[in-house]
Write a protein that binds this DNA or RNA. Structure first.
Length: 360
DNA sequence: GACTCGTGGGA
DNA sequence: TTCCCAAGAGT
């Protein structure tokens, strides 16, 4: 590792990158122009949404949240279910629960002002090491060293770090910290992320376009595209379930709100059997039907990929009288499910059921 | 440290 | 089709 990147002074690397950022910074809805400083509420909201999520996916949600809740006080005053509904489709729903908790703490306990340093930010729910450093740098111009997937990749290549992730994480964080300039640390962090997103991309990095071309050990050694190394991933099992599509004569469908923690916690669902690797035969499945009715199996299946398992669903449908009552039920108009705030896995089940003739 | 926790797009 | 991966956090 005692090659190009170490010979150049770290300040020269930072300077090159900031000059590149002045010309190539991406224009993003939550971002101030180079040299500027964005609203801390906007920075926090965007950073939470951007956790493991692409900028293109986040943009419409960011606009919608700001329109509904222009300040952290507005968000804190919103009912939790309304926040969950607005988050529907974005995934990792613990983020929405923690976002709401965090808004309430900032609004009620901190007078609406976010802490300006990493330690203070770290105490808030949903703000981990990355997000605390990112907010401190971007919103408050603190010399913090955020380490996301992009920056891990850029740093691993720049210094030719061969140790695999996640073990090498702290080492990479230390190398990043040495690069952070005292001037414009927020722009520097965003420049590193932009570089990772547009030039130092995972496969086939565009080294000819890179402002750090001459400093990069990984490029000099010829293996930048192979870095960072990562531990092999585990295989994903399949979990199977039967979903019950219950259409009432008044044109509404039976939904339920899932328990507040865990998978899809706090979100609406189409009632299902347990999700098991073994699957279900007809007799066993129908014992879990939410109401006694004449159930019939719809053709086809719904497939949805979660992070650590594949979800495979068979749908059974039934029509029930308008006066049917079910404990804990949420009856949603079948023609207005688009506004109901279903997570994507459940939206797929609903679309499949309607397409296969379960529309009532 | 190892798991859990969504979703969409690109190669 | 399948795999990877994206501004990670909480337990």
């Amino acid at each position: 590792m005692a090659d190009n990147a170490s010979e150049q002074t770290t300040s020269a690397i930072s300077r090159h990158l900031l000059a590149w950022y002045d010309r190539h910074a991406r224009s993003l809805p939550w971002r101030a122009p180079p040299g500027g400083r964005a609203d801390p509420y906007h920075v926090w909201l965007s950073e939470v949404m951007l956790q493991q999520t692409t900028t293109a996916t986040v943009a419409p949600y960011f606009h919608d949240f700001l329109q509904r809740w222009p300040s952290v006080h507005d968000l804190a005053a919103a009912p939790r279910e309304e926040v969950m509904t607005a988050w529907a489709g974005l995934g990792y729903y613990a983020r929405a629960r923690n976002l709401h908790k965090c808004a309430r703490m900032v609004s009620h306990d901190l007078g609406g002002r976010f802490p300006e340093d990493e330690a203070g930010l770290r105490k808030l729910p949903g703000i981990g090491p990355y997000t605390a450093a990112a907010i401190a740098a971007i919103a408050f111009d603190r010399p913090a060293a955020p380490l996301d997937g992009n920056i891990e990749r850029v740093v691993a290549r720049l210094f030719a770090v061969e140790d695999p992730l996640p073990g090498a994480k702290e080492s990479l964080r230390g190398l990043m910290a040495r690069l952070v300039p005292t001037e414009r640390p927020g722009d520097f962090a965003q420049a590193m992320m932009d570089l990772g997103a547009t030039v130092c991309v995972p496969k086939t990095p565009k080294c000819m376009l890179c402002p750090l071309h001459d400093a990069c050990d990984g490029r000099a050694l010829g293996g930048a595209g192979e870095l960072p190394r990562k531990a092999p991933k585990k295989a994903r099992p399949t979990r199977r379930a039967v979903a019950f599509w219950t259409v009432r004569a008044d044109g509404s469908v039976l939904l339920r709100r899932r328990p507040p923690e865990g998978l899809l916690g706090g979100m609406l669902e189409v009632p299902t059997t347990a999700w098991t690797e073994d699957g279900w035969d007809e007799t066993a499945a129908l014992r879990h039907a939410p109401v006694p009715a004449s159930w019939n199996e719809l053709p086809g299946q719904v497939r949805h990929g979660f992070t650590h398992f594949e979800f495979l669903v068979t749908v059974w449908a039934a029509q029930v009288p308008a006066e049917t009552a079910v404990a804990e039920a949420v009856w949603a108009g079948i023609d207005r499910l688009g506004d109901a705030g279903l997570p994507t896995a459940m939206r797929k089940i609903a679309e499949h059921a309607i397409r296969q003739g379960g529309g009532g």
